[in-house]
Design a protein around this nucleic acid. Structure first.
Lengths: 240, 240
DNA sequence: TCAATAGTGTCTATCAGACATTATATG
DNA sequence: CATATAATGTCTGATAGACACTATTGA
């Protein structure tokens, strides 16, 4: 009774990560080709998928799920040192459990946010998200994953300070605003955005080291992680 | 190359569901005893857990994850007919992958919301959530799952109309308010709550069938699923 | 010098919270 | 009749969106 191996399922468990960044003013995502060498050291197992684009992924063997996700971000993004202000969060699990064991797959999906300056993808490329969504070419069922990841990040921007992880310090308020505009795909009112950011304590802090500098004011990341109250994205036209 | 069974992991995959309801004015959750007959038809596999309370769960064999979650809600809740306005949503996956195959477990967690009137748990009981959290007795690592489930539902109440699934139609505005107060564990201003609910189109619709009835006004569920703007819970003291 | 952008100030409609008032039901 | 609750109306402070104005930068 202590061991009941007959209840253990043979399942291919992967961690799949949507590594999002802002590149040239557009929300973008890191993709790889199915023919590139896999993280497990073996080539892609399905000949039909050779050459198809997909999100970075790895088979889970005997590691913690979050650790696998972190490793994928580091590896696929070509990130040198483990970044401090890195955002990696589990999204949900997509499952295909079938009676045929070879069809049993679980994909534990993650979203990650990485500054473009920290990315040096060794085997992949960075594509604008809407270009990819329009083309609809993502393999491994990664299209809905990417959709969910984008929506998660857009929502996170409303009530957290994660946006500051996508700018290099020190940064200006307009730079931070352009990150929001890129992720939300909406233009924001410069004056109101500035007022809102500065009115939220701990969002950004003034960078005093550049006292005599000319040009726009410089700031660094604040200590707050959550925004109170939230900075809601516009667009939803109020009823009535 | 077509089949690579050596990459398949032997893992115990379960779906674990926090079935939440409001009972006697308190947010409550459905729990079972580990010695009760399992959904798979076998008793609990770990003698050390005999008699411990845990959330309803089931081993996933060859089914869709969402279908398993729905079945658990129906089965553990003793729900007769498949309810229309039922809320079942995936939370996230908790994983313990170890080098020892017997320690490899994946728990795909779900939250469900069910009206207390629809619950007739055949093998479990319904406990107030804060009593359970205080006691800290949940097995199978279900304590953090319950915490996450409660937080997810509290957040859902802010921007969706799921609260209406916990009252029986027709209902009064104060009844709906008491659902919010129970889930959020905060008292709400009656006048402001009423104004807010009625100002949101599609949240509730007036029940004209009880035209000559005495007493508070009766309403039914509206067609809206999302609230614009959100009904934020109080408590977060504004800065400054 | 001109154009574009950064920064500051102000106005207004809207909304949340609080309070007052009246009506109704229940003891 | 008294109390509790439902329902309606009003007031105020805070906020978001929009606009105007000035300052600064760079072509």
């Amino acid at each position: 009774m202590a061991k009941q191996p007959e209840r253990l399922q043979r399942v291919l468990i992967t961690v799949d990560v949507a590594v999002l960044t802002v590149r040239q003013g557009r929300l973008s995502v890191l993709v790889e080709r199915a023919d590139s060498v896999w993280r497990s050291g073996e080539p892609a197992e399905e000949p039909g998928l050779l050459g198809a684009w997909h999100l970075p992924r790895a088979v889970v063997m005997a590691q913690d799920l979050d650790d696998v996700a972190d490793a994928i971000v580091q590896d696929a993004g070509g990130i040198a040192e483990a970044n401090d202000a890195q955002f990696v969060e589990q999204l949900r699990t997509y499952g295909t459990m079938s009676a045929r064991p070879t069809d049993c797959r679980l994909s534990v999906a993650y979203v990650a946010l990485v500054a473009e300056s920290a990315l040096a993808p060794p085997t992949g490329r960075v594509f604008a998200v809407d270009d990819l969504q329009e083309a609809g070419v993502l393999a491994y069922g990664h299209a809905p994953l990417l959709d969910d990841a984008v929506e998660r990040v857009r929502a996170k921007f409303e009530y957290t300070t994660v946006a500051t992880t996508l700018v290099t310090e020190p940064f200006t308020i307009p730079e931070l605003r352009r990150v929001y505009e890129s992720v939300w795909s909406v233009p924001l009112h410069p004056a109101n955005f500035r007022r809102k950011v500065l009115a939220t304590p701990g969002f950004v802090v003034s960078d005093a080291t550049a006292g005599d500098r000319r040009g726009p004011d410089l700031f660094r990341r604040g200590t707050a992680a959550l925004l109170h109250p939230a900075m809601l994205r516009p667009g939803e036209p109020d009823r009535d």
